[in-house]
Amino acid sequence: MTRPSIATPFPPPPGARSRALRTERGEFAVVDAPVAAGVEQRGVALLLPGFTGSKEDFHRLHEPLAARGYRSIAVDGRGQNESDGPAEDESPYAQEELAKDVLAQAAALDAPVHLVGHSLGGQIARAAVLLDHSPFVSFTLLSSGPGEISESQKQRVKLLHDALAVMSMSQVWAAILAMGPPEEVGGPARGFGKLEQMRLRWLNHKPAQLLTTGRQLCVEPDRVGELATVPLPLHVLSGARDDTWPVPLLDAMAEDLRAHRTVVPGAEHSPNLDKPLPTAHALADFWDR
């Protein structure tokens, strides 16, 4: 079941609406973009954001996907931006719990789903697929690697964790700006909109969500062998440069998975933000197959 459009300080892109998706595991804030007028619907896509990210990171994909006949639903996971979650209790953010959320979201859409997970979202999506692949017709890992993140990104996560241990979310935001906009992971001062929207999104995140999922990124095991046994069409899509999982590592993962491989020229860790049009076309081309 779904609810009507909701008021939000994060306006959806043209043709889409912000609403609450009601599932058996609670409500999740989503941006829901139907296919373009006069275009036959070819499929439904569920888009999961990365660490410190949100559904708004996919804003620039909705319109070109709609033109290709794909309804796209971008979701704030539990404790991300406009989706509620506990501020201090970390247990609901364990990877298996978040994976069960994804399965509930797919069930609520009541249609076969093309699953797309960016970065952290890719690892949560992978856990969901390994629990139950039946709701999905394909799975795309978007700038999401086989296991733990690079050492340089682990250091960034550690800095964030150390800061959250002694500072409020607003104080951490001020410190982030004082250091200048960081590169990914997730880039809390980089993204889809104006700086005030970036600040509000950061403040909306639950600290427990950031702490738990940040640790997950630093210790995630390589589950490529498990994923390779799943009978789904797989797609590994990335930019031409990535500091979180080096591109050669993503190339090797795609080969091990016998997955379709797309490298988007001129894009880095967030092709959905860096080069949205070729990224959307690469997704739709894969789904069309």
Results as ranks from 00 to 15, higher is better:
Phe10Asp: 06
Phe10Leu: 08
Phe10Gln: 01
Pro11Ile: 01
Pro11Cys: 05
Pro12Thr: 10
Pro13Asn: 03
Pro13His: 04
Pro14Ala: 12
Pro14Ile: 05
Pro14Asn: 03
Gly15Asp: 11
Gly15Trp: 07
Ala16Lys: 05
Ala16Gly: 09
Ala16Thr: 02
Ala16Asn: 03
Arg17Tyr: 00
Arg17Thr: 05
Arg17Lys: 10
Arg17Asp: 04
Arg17Ala: 05
Arg17Pro: 00
Ser18Trp: 03
Ser18Ile: 00
Leu21Ile: 01
Leu21Tyr: 01
Leu21Ala: 02
Thr23Lys: 03
Arg25Phe: 02
Arg25Cys: 01
Gly26Arg: 08
Glu27Leu: 05
Phe28Tyr: 15
Ala29Arg: 14
Ala29Gly: 08
Ala29Cys: 05
Ala29His: 14
Ala29Gln: 11
Val30Gln: 04
Val30Cys: 10
Val31Ala: 08
Val31Cys: 10
Val31Met: 09
Val31Tyr: 04
Asp32Phe: 11
Asp32Asn: 08
Asp32Ala: 04
Ala33Ser: 15
Pro34Gly: 07
Pro34Lys: 11
Val35Ala: 12
Val35Glu: 15
Val35Cys: 07
Ala37Lys: 15
Ala37Leu: 09
Gly38Ala: 08
Gly38Lys: 10
Val39His: 09
Val39Lys: 11
Glu40Asn: 05
Glu40Gly: 00
Glu40Pro: 01
Glu40Met: 03
Gln41Trp: 00
Gln41Tyr: 00
Gln41Lys: 11
Arg42Tyr: 03
Arg42Cys: 07
Arg42Ser: 05
Arg42Val: 02
Arg42Gly: 07
Gly43Met: 10
Gly43Glu: 12
Gly43Leu: 09
Gly43Ile: 06
Gly43Arg: 06
Val44Ala: 01
Val44Glu: 08
Val44Cys: 14
Val44Phe: 00
Ala45Gly: 06
Ala45Asn: 07
Ala45Ile: 10
Leu46Trp: 09
Leu46Gly: 06
Leu47Phe: 11
Leu48His: 14
Leu48Phe: 10
Leu48Val: 12
Pro49Ile: 04
Pro49Cys: 08
Pro49Gly: 02
Phe51Met: 12
Phe51Pro: 06
Phe51Glu: 13
Thr52Tyr: 04
Thr52Ile: 08
Gly53Ser: 15
Gly53Cys: 10
Ser54Phe: 04
Ser54Cys: 14
Lys55Phe: 02
Lys55Ala: 06
Lys55Thr: 06
Asp57Lys: 00
Phe58Trp: 15
Phe58His: 12
His59Ser: 13
Arg60Cys: 00
Arg60Ala: 10
Arg60Met: 00
Leu61Met: 07
Leu61Pro: 07
Leu61Lys: 04
Leu61Asp: 14
His62Asn: 10
His62Trp: 13
His62Lys: 11
Glu63Arg: 14
Glu63Thr: 15
Pro64Lys: 01
Pro64Met: 09
Pro64Leu: 09
Leu65Ile: 02
Ala66Ser: 14
Ala66Asp: 13
Ala66Gln: 14
Arg68Val: 05
Arg68Gln: 14
